[in-house]
Design a protein around this nucleic acid. Structure first.
Lengths: 110, 110
DNA sequence: TATTTATATTGCAATATTACGATATAGATA
DNA sequence: TATCTATATCGTAATATTGCAATATAAATA
């Protein structure tokens, strides 16, 4: 139905899914990579970096912000976006858990 | 348009997005967590674990498999799913990069 | 072979996402 | 204040995702 049955899953599962989903678009991957690359809060030049129209980029930024993966500060006229540690810390544990498991698992059937 | 302009992004960006997107649903998080928890290849009892109908679970398993995050082996009648290290290794570097960056960044405006 | 059991596929309805033109808003500056 | 610049929002079209009933498939067993 295009509607996810969130109420049947745990808060943790829903939260992890929301975070992963927010990362799950090439434009949003590109935004994250760009924010890391320039190593400073970047404003509207994200729009120039991406092959998408300004409203589309604005929408992607909003989704990343809603998910808690970036945050924005007013800087004069413009807005300054950068990574939000909080959001990424929430997924960190999940992937560490997986990696630890994968490093130690043995005698699996596949 | 619901259609992602993949052709404008790098292969790496598209691949990372595909992986994150596949993880970005609570049912698929639950499947991953379950496969880790039982520490062995699990067959149809994933269906019993999840609050979704069998065809829906089958579809989620397919998406995880297509993304390279799980793999399945025939085991007699049933099919045995487990985590696919390859897929997870591909995202690992991305998150490690982010974590390293976040741990070292200073004097940011936000 | 017929039946049972496990899983996948099809078809479809409801909803969500992506993209962008047009427009609104809000701060900076002339 | 009028204007410019930067960003957000609205409205809408195209497409994708989610979920499930019905059905198909395929291996195991009676």
């Amino acid at each position: 139905m295009g509607i996810t049955k969130s109420e049947h899953f745990t808060d943790e599962q829903n939260e992890l899914a929301t975070l992963a989903k927010a990362i799950g678009h090439p434009a949003r991957i590109a935004i994250i990579q760009h924010l890391i690359k320039v190593n400073s809060c970047v404003c509207g030049d994200i729009v120039n970096e991406l092959p998408l129209a300004q409203p589309t980029v604005s929408q992607h930024l909003k989704e990343l912000k809603n998910a808690g993966l970036i945050k924005g500060n007013f800087e004069g006229n413009a807005i300054c976006y950068c990574l939000n540690e909080e959001g990424f810390n929430k997924i960190k544990g999940f992937f560490q858990h997986i990696n630890t498991y994968l490093e130690n698992k043995k005698n699996q059937c596949c």
